[in-house]
Nucleic acid binder design. Structure first.
Lengths: 247, 247
DNA sequence: ACTTGTCTTCCGTTCAGCGGAAGAGGAACC
DNA sequence: GGTTCCTCTTCCGCTGAACGGAAGACAAGT
């Protein structure tokens, strides 16, 4: 089975996650299920190349070169760059935490995030994944997702807070409204004390490529103004995307 | 020499760069110097793991999983997150293109960048590397770099524009001033029509961990105000870094 | 139909990777 | 001082996984 050198290398890299940003050699070996001597050699090669870096403490972390590579990913290069200035505008206009997200399978993948110094309790981090049904951007992405994804998502409406929507019928109704109104909202469905609003970002062929959202303590005041600010920004991103050297 | 499986895998990944974000299998094999059959197998494994993704066109790009990994790098997680809100403040106060950079060997590595809709001609991109002697952030980083890096950098003062500083004595003098004044400036030394100012960002033990800079069309007006805005932001970043869960 | 690309699969040889074992620090405790 | 328990590093002989030439499949262009 999985016993190729390549898979071992990848297992080593996969040993890192957001709870384990730095690991000792023995940890790496343990987590990757490799004998220490083997891990030692592979990690040595990875470090020499720049994929890993050894801290003064002896622990290993993901190196600069892998960071570089990540930046070449299409997630990063196209969408984020096009959106960046608009995210600012939006932040300036709303002073809310701003989110840019895409759908990755049955989850929301946060591509960019822009927060002020103080902010409402927000769970997301750039690169983190959350369920589609409990966040503003998630509802937007789900509303425009293909059939099979929707059924899969409906199959697991996990409860996160007392306000999380777990009834399929209710969610289906909300998604319909998202499609007609052009925006989605949530009220403390993902984390208490946080409401959100989100709109779709449309690419060249008018299909939904991402979602743009904000998180605020209270949505009732000013909802109209916030939504329109979101829509202006989303249209701007879409236009920039279409005219970009998407190469 | 370098003919281990690991090195081959890394050569494949290294075949991607900012001018080659997507590559066909044959391109990959060519650029990595591998026989097609070998590349085929390795690329297959990488794709299965999620390090690469195959586009509908058949070309390969860096996959989401590598993007994720890059986000775990300390560059990303510590420095960028701590700096993000301050970069905004700075943008708001100056309306200039804002740069956050670290030194990587003998080059400036741009860690974050924040630009408005229209901007002065700026060469940098996030993740790009530029020589240390021709940019504002570069001069700051060089001024506080260890001896050996300085001598190495002085050995190759390549000319970029007519205003680029290529005389070692002049540069040495400027660096001394950077250390006493606490900031660096450039005037069209990297790209015509662009001036810049930069200050050091100091970490826990007061050592310089990064540089913060802005790019503007003209520096003479308002220089004092810009520098002081930079310094306020840099201090803020430093304080946040020190108190962060640097894990 | 022929050329020139691409990608994919097969399979026997061989040499690179494997990993047990032993040893070299280093820290903590008695 | 010794003992225990970590960590990391190096060595080396055996073996099976990786290699890559070759042949074939497919697509696009002429």
């Amino acid at each position: 089975m999985g016993a190729t050198v390549t898979s071992r290398v990848l297992d080593l890299l996969g040993a890192f996650d957001s709870d384990h940003r730095s690991l000792t050699l023995s940890d790496l070996a343990r987590r990757a299920g490799l004998p220490l001597a083997t891990a030692h050699r592979l990690v040595g090669e990875l470090t020499r190349w720049g994929a890993l870096t050894r801290l003064p403490t002896g622990e290993y972390v993901i190196g600069r070169r892998l960071w570089d590579l990540g930046l070449l990913s299409p997630v990063q290069s196209g969408l984020r760059q096009a959106a960046s200035p608009f995210l600012h505008d939006l932040y300036g206009a709303t002073l809310a935490t701003v989110h840019l997200a895409v759908r990755d399978g049955c989850e929301v993948l946060y591509v960019d995030r822009l927060a002020g110094h103080v902010s409402v309790p927000v769970v997301s981090k750039i690169g983190s994944r959350l369920p589609l049904h409990a966040t503003g951007v998630g509802k937007v992405l789900l509303a425009y997702a293909p059939e099979d994804i929707r059924t899969e998502a409906f199959a697991r409406l996990t409860r996160v807070t007392p306000y999380t929507i777990t009834q399929p019928a209710l969610l289906a109704d909300q998604l319909k409204r998202v499609r007609t109104a052009g925006f989605a909202t949530t009220g403390e469905e993902m984390s208490l004390g946080a409401c959100s609003a989100a709109v779709p970002v449309r690419g060249e062929a008018d299909q939904v490529v991402a979602a743009l959202g904000i998180v605020v303590p209270d949505l009732r005041r000013e909802q109209a103004r916030l939504i329109s600010a979101l829509q202006v920004a989303a249209r701007g991103i879409g236009r920039t995307l279409a005219s970009a050297q998407w190469k």
